[in-house]
Design a protein around this nucleic acid. Structure first.
Lengths: 272, 272
DNA sequence: TTGCTCCTCACGTCACGTGAGGTGGC
DNA sequence: TTGCTCCTCACGTCACGTGAGGTGGC
């Protein structure tokens, strides 16, 4: 018979751990002195302790371990538990590797001068957005600004004409097509649940919920192209893959004070 | 101005999270109504929230984030923090991958019949052991049992002759050398801190502290070779590499009832 | 008698989730 | 007035670590 300290040394655990396992019913001492409460273990219980530690090292919770010890599960159940565990660990490894690449992307960004732009990239799922928009195909980069200013009033008129209230303005861009068709700009306003009819120019569309990288741009819109450039470099650098169009959400937009604008840039991405 | 619910939806977090960040001083609302306690945020604070979330996603604690936001650290400090973070994530990934390989080794072991033997493999650091031993070189596998029985009484006599008390008996094995020199068996007893002089046959040695895989074998010693075989297969299967000699610790040994024996098998290993 | 080990509470960890119980504005 | 949102506690999470305060055996 060993007292708790001797058994703890033998099994390389703390006495607190043994008391904890006793309390949970995972590993009761072979004998407990009724008068003093002293716990005594047999050397043979080292095998029981090992079983608990082995399962713990595989990542099972103590509650799961208790069930395994108590229910004496079949080979099939055991296999199922191990497979589940494997899948969970694979998820964790994937998450941590993605995190690692984000950290490394930040380290490389520190070498350049774009650290400020890029310090607050967040991965999120996009909100579902219903918007009324006009699409303008065949644009070059320089065309986008003027096109925006041209299209937004037109969509606005349509929305208010339908008796609805516009939300924030939203733009999204389809990639240049392979055969050089240029950029397709979609510009308009969020309308949430309101009823707005289509016209030949204005269409109501639902932007899908996707995984995206997101940064907040604060300040005058003329800084947005540079922000996009640094943002896209960071994304590619972090190992994420582009997975669809990018969006701009104008959360705060005042013509009177453009430098107070708050714009969110979103790029749909997927895990490498 | 947005109330907490609106701001939470904008930033894709819970209101509880925003209250928590307020409490920690990470992100105070732009205005708090003194009468009602209502929190109000400006859209521009979305950028602040993004910074917090971005740092959180890199794996920093909220306390670290608070320091980053408060101290406005230099590029060099930032770089140092990111490098530390990178190293920590790499450790986590390594741990999880090793864990994954252990789970997979168990799954494969379930296909065979050695699941029982191998269910309680634990990775540990070995205890430091000081022992008095005799080494017997040039053995084959069949010689080991008889050699043990021959050597142990001799070591025992030496220890008691020196006025010391033997601890548990311990054996360890050096690999067969490349030129076919056979196995070198070291057999003896733990002596802990006691003074035992060397003789021409008996030597006092300190077994080093190493990372090892360990299983407990309960029962008659004739089961030990089969346990070793399954154990070694599991180790190789789990991706660990052998990194030195293996040991046997006879935690419980009674000649009168050999089936009550408790033997620990240890094999020094290193990460793949 | 002095150390050493043992005992039983009970708080702390980390970033919130989840009620409980109550109040203010449309 | 009825829902909705907001508020402030305060407990729970997971596997122990770490005292606090006290007792029993060499």
């Amino acid at each position: 018979m060993l007292n708790i300290g001797e058994f703890a040394r033998l099994g390389q655990v703390s006495t607190r751990t043994l008391r904890h396992y006793d309390e949970l019913g995972l590993l009761a001492p072979a004998r407990t002195d009724v008068a003093t409460g002293y716990r005594f273990y047999s050397v043979r219980q080292l095998a029981e302790l090992h079983r608990v530690l082995a399962l713990r090292d595989l990542g099972f919770t103590l509650e799961q371990i208790g069930k395994v010890l108590g229910d004496d599960p079949s080979i099939e159940e055991l296999r199922g538990m191990l497979r589940l565990r494997r899948a969970q660990i694979e998820l964790v490894v994937g998450d941590e590797l993605a995190r690692l690449r984000r950290v490394e992307a930040h380290l490389r960004a520190l070498e350049g001068s774009e650290s400020v732009v890029v310090q607050d990239v967040v991965m999120k799922k996009t909100q579902p957005i219903r918007m009324a928009e006009i699409a303008a195909p065949g644009l070059t980069h320089q065309d986008i600004g003027p096109a925006f200013e041209r299209l937004l009033p037109e969509v606005l008129a349509h929305i208010t004409g339908a008796g609805a209230t516009p939300g924030i303005s939203v733009g999204w861009y389809e990639d240049e097509t392979v055969d050089g068709g240029g950029i397709v700009l979609h510009a308009g306003f969020e309308i949430a649940g309101q009823d707005v009819p289509d016209s030949d120019r204005v269409h109501v569309v639902d932007l899908p919920v996707v995984d995206a990288a997101s940064v907040i741009h604060r300040g005058h819109p003329h800084g947005i192209p540079a922000a996009w450039e640094a943002f896209m470099r960071w994304i590619e650098d972090s190992g994420y893959r582009l997975a669809g169009p990018c969006r701009e959400l104008y959360h705060e937009f005042h013509l009177e004070d453009l430098s107070a604008n708050v714009t969110e840039l979103q790029q749909a991405v997927s895990r490498p």
